[in-house]
């Protein structure tokens, strides 16, 4: 009897969430198309149509700046985020050693983290000029904090029984870190890496917007200067898509790890 119920359920597989996501996207684009392209309810420089000379699509098909900017920004986020993770790990390990240090420095890091990244851009420009360094500064600043905080707290909070198990079986010093403390912190760390990613991504766009480096953020500025709302909207779409893709890759990694560890998996 139970088997019948089970097999019925297998036949009637529920529609996956991503299918609904896709449906939502098409409905939205359809409504947009009807309102702008078909009914022409708005002026093209306010809400641009999807197709045509002043449309959004043309920004992808016939705008070389778009395809030059995307790899530039990806490059920058890769370097900036990578550096942030390494730096965050080092700071996190140092902070994990002493509760006092964690209290003093950790408090400052939390405070800095609560300031929106874009607020640091003017300072970065004053210090480094209107160049890439300023962008890297905000990206790294925003990206390293969640990693540092997560590593320091999760290393310090590794269950004493795991630590004891490691030591009684011969692990000490670096071996204990590499084979017990780090793996034990990994589930917390994956969450922090994802948070850090989204902070760094926002910082990158803000930094590029306010400095004059070619990149996705700069496309927004170009769009504003040329009253090209189609470019602005196309760019927002790119920012969102890249953000979501990276986020879901990291989320699936996080889920795999949590599942392997026998931890609750956040939907």
């Amino acid at each position: 009897m139970q088997q019948t119920i089970g097999s019925e359920r297998q036949v009637k597989k529920p529609i996956a969430l991503w299918v609904w996501n896709l449906v939502g996207l098409f409905v939205f684009l359809g409504l947009w198309f009807v309102a702008t392209d078909v009914l022409k309810l708005y002026k093209p420089y306010v809400i641009p149509p999807i197709l045509g000379e002043q449309g959004i699509l043309i920004e992808f098909t016939d705008n070389p700046a778009m395809w030059k900017s995307i790899p530039q920004s990806i490059m920058r986020i890769a370097i900036g985020y990578g550096t942030a993770v390494v730096l965050g790990s080092i700071v996190g390990i140092i902070l994990s050693i002493s509760t006092g240090l964690r209290g003093i420095v950790g408090g400052w890091l939390t405070a800095i983290q609560s300031v929106p990244s874009i607020a640091f851009v003017p300072l970065a420009i004053l210090w480094f000029g209107l160049n890439e360094k300023a962008v890297y500064f905000v990206v790294i600043l925003e990206g390293f904090i969640p990693v540092a905080l997560a590593i320091s707290s999760s290393l310090a909070n590794v269950s004493p029984s795991l630590r004891i198990a490691g030591r009684t079986l011969g692990a000490k010093g670096l071996g204990l870190y590499l084979k017990v403390l780090f793996p034990a912190s990994l589930p917390n760390l994956t969450t922090a890496l994802r948070t850090s990613w989204s902070f760094a991504w926002r910082a990158l766009i803000g930094g590029e917007l306010l400095t004059s480096n070619q990149g996705i953020g700069q496309l927004l500025e170009t769009g504003r200067n040329t009253s090209n709302s189609a470019l602005v909207i196309a760019t927002i779409f790119v920012i969102g898509t890249l953000g979501i893709v990276m986020d879901s890759v990291m989320r699936s990694w996080e889920t795999t790890i949590r599942r392997n560890y026998g931890l609750e998996v956040n939907a």
């Binding site: 269950s159 029984s161 795991l162 004891i164 198990a165 030591r167 009684t168 079986l169 011969g170 000490k172 017990v180 793996p183 034990a184 990994l186 392997n260 560890y261 026998g262 931890l263």
Partner: peptide, 18 residues
Amino acid sequence: HPNMGQTLVQQEHALFPW
């Protein structure tokens, strides 16, 4: 100090989930 000559089994299993 802790040593492989004497190994400890704890009350809670303390196995490594990874």
